[in-house]
Amino acid sequence: MEIDPFIFRFSIFILAIFVGYYVVWSVTPSLHTPLMSVTNAISSVIIVGAIVAALAGDNNKIFDTANIFGFLAIILAAVNIFGGFLVTHRMLAMYKKKKKDK
């Protein structure tokens, strides 16, 4: 009997939850704010769905309702991707170690 591809995806999902669990526990508490902003940025990978929704199908259909929703989602996700990664970068650049005293 063949296994439904859904089960494969579900396995990935469950394993990824465990990976996330262990990885996030190892994040130092002082970096919890950058953790939130970077998770926010990466969850905007939803943009791949938005791109498919906006571009797929006929070229003369790009202004159908479904495609317009895709384009709107692209804008929202793009704000998040650039905003999220850049603000994380800005924060991380501030974390400095004590300068060695002379």
């Binding site: 591809p5 990824a16 996330g20």
Partner: peptide, 22 residues
């Protein structure tokens, strides 16, 4: 899951568990 996209599934699971731990 809807789009059958593993990047989204992995990321979603990571972010979901990260937020839950926090």
């Amino acid at each position: 899951f809807t789009l059958e996209n593993s990047a989204l599934i992995i990321t979603g699971a990571l972010v979901g568990s990260s937020g839950a731990i926090l």
